[in-house]
Each structure stands twice: as structure tokens, then as C-alpha cells.
Amino acid sequence: MDEQLQEDWLDAQLREEAPYIDDAGFTARVVQQLPAGRRQSRVVRVSVLLGVTFVACVIAYLVSGGGRFLADAATFLVAMPLATVCAIAGLCAITVMGVSAYAAASNARELRL
């Protein structure tokens, strides 16, 4: 019982040891240092990505003779043995899983800060 009282007393002293600290311009100093224009840079990044994708699509279309390579690829795949198609699909799945695992690990590292 005495032990409990002693612990309560210690906790009370520790809590008292943490009085409210007045802001005194602290928040203003932090806000002043915040990097500006994160939203703007995000918009720019998305625009650049979309633009590059569009240009790449146009180039691919022109170079391949009006998208003929798609029809060629489909014909090629149909002619392939089933085992080869399964092996390619498996390889793709493994690649996607690897990339996802890497993304998850980087996210977890960010959370650890």
C-alpha cells in the first residue's frame, strides 16, 4: 500500500514537472520555415508525367507504323507454346511482387523516421 502511495506521489511530482510552455512565437517561427508550394510542385510533377506519357505514346504509334506492333505481338503470343506463356506470366508476377515489396519496405522506413 505504502509502495502504491509512493508511486502515486512520484507520478504527481513528474506531472507537475511538466507545466504548459507558452508558445511565445514558436509556432510562427516553425510556419515561417515551412517549404512553400508543395501543391504547386505536385501539379507540375503530374503535368510533366502526363505530358511525357502522351509524347511517348505518339512516338510509339508513329514508329510502329500505326500500332501494327500490337497485332504482331498478339499473333506472336497466340503462336507461343503454353509453357512459355505461363513462364512469362510467372516472371511478370514475380517482378510485380518484388516492386511491391520494395515499395512497402520504403514506406515502412519512412514511418520509422
Binding site: A18, I21, T27
Partner: peptide, 21 residues
């Protein structure tokens, strides 16, 4: 969503005492 500096300032105001303490 909005990169709202005022919202972040409010978060700082709320937690500055505990973090600085």
C-alpha cells in the same frame, strides 16, 4: 490535401508545449 499551412500551424500550437517539454 490542400497543403494548408494554417491547419499545420494549429497542429503546432496544440502540441508545441508537450513536444518542447
Amino acid at each position: 490535401l490542400e497543403d494548408d499551412h494554417h491547419a499545420f500551424a494549429e497542429l503546432v500550437r496544440r502540441h508545441q508545449s508537450a513536444v518542447r517539454g
